[in-house]
Design a protein around this nucleic acid. Structure first.
Lengths: 167, 167
DNA sequence: TAAGAATAATTCGTATAAGAATTAAATCCG
DNA sequence: CGGATTTAATTCTTATACGAATTATTCTTA
């Protein structure tokens, strides 16, 4: 592998992984009838409930608007509840419904997802290699995302923050 | 980094990179007014034209239906042309329009994209590390994608093929 | 305190992406 | 030859995901 080490071929490899991950993420999970993002949201909520929409968005590295759609679908399935906060009536507290909690306790493996199960089979050493590679990529992508002024010449909206959803 | 080497934290790191990549891919490129997938399609077409829709889909690791939408938008912008093939009148041959070719020759850097430019700044050694990590991930994801019978118990539609879009 | 700024959630429009179904054309085979 | 199967492109529905705009509420500050 990687005998042809041109940037081109590596890029293609990366794109392919991302496409595969997207595919994996979006396909409905047969066992639960939920998509990857939906399963991920359930898992994050189960570990952090009660939490606000923007907190969930930050933990999932997406924008609040995206989480609203996911929550709409999970609420329609009866897996989560949205309750207006008393302290801050702008905020909405998210929790798992009884049915949602049942799902988590009954099938933790389903919630985990195939990706996590697959990675858990790797030796620690390889996990660290992958993590290091991810760190390099996030550095590249992060710099381009948050500091475009050096690249594009526009000096607006530059913040060195770490969390995509500021809340 | 990676001091806490639990699978959990590594998974989160990976998810974050994918999210960042998605974000990067989808944001419209300011210089050309094109999205990441649109730029990528232009690049692939420029290197392989004339080619069929399903060939383009295979080279981009997506389904034909997805490429149709991208081509619709590129055609509306006047950057690509669709011509019904004479040999096989089911097929459509895709090419860059004069304007599309002009874009490629005038601004190859734009077509390349920030991700490639960022990666090109890395030393060869690190690129190989990243490539190896990607290979491991694609192995995990690929196995789950193409051979679900061992995991889910369903023994249908199992093919060890390499190309997502069979054409 | 009241006007203005900031924040939380939502809605809207656009773009990817998948899968399923459809249409049209080519190929297979009996 | 002619029906059946396969293949290519397209359309449709659903689900993410973003940015921008809206609304409601809270915080600031003059």
């Amino acid at each position: 592998m990687a005998a042809n080490s041109s940037v081109e071929s590596i890029i293609n490899n990366i794109r392919r992984v991302f496409q595969a991950f997207n595919d994996y993420s979006k396909r409905a999970n047969m066992e639960a009838g939920l998509t990857g993002p939906q399963l991920w949201a359930i898992k994050v909520i189960s570990e952090n409930a009660p939490l606000r929409v923007c907190d969930l968005a930050a933990l999932m590295f997406v924008r609040p608007g995206t989480v609203v759609g996911i929550l709409d679908r999970l609420e329609k399935k009866g897996l989560v509840t949205r309750i207006r906060s008393q302290q801050d009536r702008r905020a909405v507290m998210i929790e798992l419904s009884a049915q949602g909690k049942e799902l988590v306790s009954a099938a933790p493996g389903v919630i985990q997802g195939d990706l996590i199960r697959g990675l858990e089979t790797l030796p620690e050493e390889e996990l660290l290699d992958i993590d290091a590679s991810m760190a390099r990529l996030v550095a590249i992508l992060g710099v381009q995302q948050l500091k475009p002024l050096m690249i594009h010449g526009t000096d607006e909206a530059v913040q060195g923050d770490d969390t995509p959803a500021g809340c």
